[in-house]
């Protein structure tokens, strides 16, 4: 493990200022133009180094900062303070369905996402067949995304992400998507990615996924790391804790 970390976070903090106006001028005027904001501390000094080829599972309760950390690695937000270095391209699967546009067709979304994730247009065209094939969406590729079921969207998102050349795959919530046979296909592909020395960072509440896919597990609590180590051990302690403090 002499290789430099591909993701390196030092004393990482992230605060969100939640505005209570919710995008409405009316609400703002009615509240008398006072700035009503609430500060939420999602990350409070996170230190973590992930090396190439690791599959790191993030576990923890809702609001412990797992998704925020993934979004920071995916450059959706800027850290409030601390440093975060990401030394590779990132393919994010944040929440369901990646960054798809509901009004565009499957094919248009593949192109849009492929290029956002750093492929050239020629590369996306080349891989399009294989992406559609893996997602099993041949008959729907020219229909707008809003006509897709959530399972279909998730399959397409997963398929696009694994067909990019990104060194890092971020997965929030749904590691293996679709029905059971499709899930097996996802797990096979994840194993392949691990053999290709790609780095996977995923959030999961499925403890079987954590032990099956993870080479390492990180238990997060209130924006910090509570435990970091072997997936089986982390899961045991985490579950024991969850039972003791409801």
């Amino acid at each position: 493990m002499a290789e430099a970390p591909i993701i390196e976070a030092h004393d990482l903090h992230k605060q969100f200022k939640l505005s209570l106006y919710q995008g409405s001028l009316k609400a703002m005027v009615l509240s008398g133009m006072r700035r009503k904001t609430r500060v939420v501390e999602a990350l409070r000094g996170l230190d973590l180094a992930v090396r190439p080829g690791e599959a790191v599972a993030l576990v923890g309760r809702n609001g412990s900062g797992k998704s925020t950390f993934l979004s920071l690695v995916g450059r959706i937000y800027l850290p409030t303070c601390g440093t975060l270095e990401v030394r590779g391209r990132v393919a994010p699967l944040l929440e369901l369905g990646a960054g798809f546009h509901p009004d565009l067709t499957g094919r248009e979304n593949i192109m849009l996402n492929g290029v956002i994730l750093g492929l050239t247009r020629a590369q996306v065209s080349e891989r399009e067949d294989s992406i559609v094939e893996f997602a099993e969406l041949r008959d729907f590729v020219d229909a707008p995304l809003r006509t897709y079921s959530s399972g279909m969207q998730a399959r397409l998102g997963f398929s696009v992400a694994i067909h990019t050349d990104s060194e890092i795959l971020l997965v929030d919530e749904a590691l293996a998507v679709g029905d059971e046979s499709f899930q097996e296909k996802c797990f096979d592909r994840i194993e392949q990615l691990k053999r290709e020395w790609r780095t996977i960072l995923f959030v999961s509440h499925e403890m079987t996924d954590v032990t099956r896919v993870g080479t390492r597990a990180v238990w997060m609590e209130q924006g910090r790391i509570r435990m970091d180590g072997d997936p089986a051990e982390v899961v045991d302690r985490y579950l024991a804790d969850a039972h003791h403090s409801p």
């Binding site: 800027l78 601390g82 440093t83 030394r87």
Partner: peptide, 15 residues
């Protein structure tokens, strides 16, 4: 391997 560093200085508002 193509490297793309996303270093962000503390409290940096952007580029």
């Amino acid at each position: 391997m193509t490297l793309r560093s996303a270093t962000s200085a503390p409290r940096s508002n952007g580029n």
